[in-house]
Design a binder for these strands. Structure first.
Length: 200
DNA sequence: CGGGTTTGACCCGCGC
DNA sequence: GCGCGGGTCAAACCCG
């Protein structure tokens, strides 16, 4: 398992346990996120692992991955272990949790804002200055009660326009913003589907 | 007043 | 064993 290279994994991004699950899309066209925050994602480089400006990212992602299996721009660790409920039970205050093997997914965006709007609500629970970086790393948790997805956000010191976001875990609830957008459409579709075909 | 942010302290894994 | 670095907690603070 440790030898798995996420970049070469066919499951990128990690498979969704539910239809509501949202991870970064495979192409900008399908991007469900607010475009003002994701206007310049280098998806090609990210998913091909050929980006040449990611020295910082490499270090970050090697750190982000508990298995440190790859030194590439994008890490998507998905070894299938779902520990959404009380996964960090043994964790104590401030303590590093036991080596959790939750799915991790990191990517970088070119943005002036550190926080990109991915449709979910996040609460910041910590910020740390990290070695070899002039920018601090911010820690966020999903505010949904039953969801313990976390993410880390850090700006690259070598390319200050780049922001690296590392997701950990999988949302087990719908994306609120997406649902807000889709609900009227779905209602309309549902309504139309009830009409006799002759009317349509 | 409730929810989010800030920030110093605490804890723990890891390398030496 | 010790120190460093990183992840988390939680009280204080802020804001709508």
């Amino acid at each position: 398992m440790e030898s798995q290279d996420p970049l070469n994994s066919p499951n990128l991004p990690p498979p969704s346990p539910s239809p509501s699950f949202l991870f970064p899309p495979m192409s900008p066209v399908q991007n469900p996120w607010d475009s003002r925050d994701l206007h310049d994602i280098d998806w090609v480089s990210l998913f091909s692992g050929q980006s040449n400006m990611l020295e910082d990212t490499k270090a970050m992602m090697e750190h982000a991955s508990s298995s440190s299996s790859s030194s590439s721009a994008l890490m998507a660790e998905n070894n299938g272990t779902q520990m959404d409920e009380k996964s960090n039970k043994e964790k104590r205050k401030g303590g590093r949790s036991k080596k959790t093997t939750r799915p991790r997914f990191a990517f970088q965006t070119r943005s002036v804002d550190d926080i990109l709007d991915d449709g979910y609500r996040w609460r910041k629970y910590g910020q740390k200055s990290v070695k070899n970086s002039i920018y601090p790393r911010s820690y966020y948790r999903c505010t949904h009660h039953t969801c313990n997805v976390k993410k880390q956000v850090q700006r690259l010191s070598k390319d200050t326009s780049m922001v690296v976001t590392t997701y950990e875990g999988i949302h087990n609830h719908p994306c609120e913003k997406l649902m807000e957008t889709l609900t009227p459409l779905l209602n309309q579709i549902q309504f139309l589907s009830t009409l006799p075909s002759t009317i349509i």
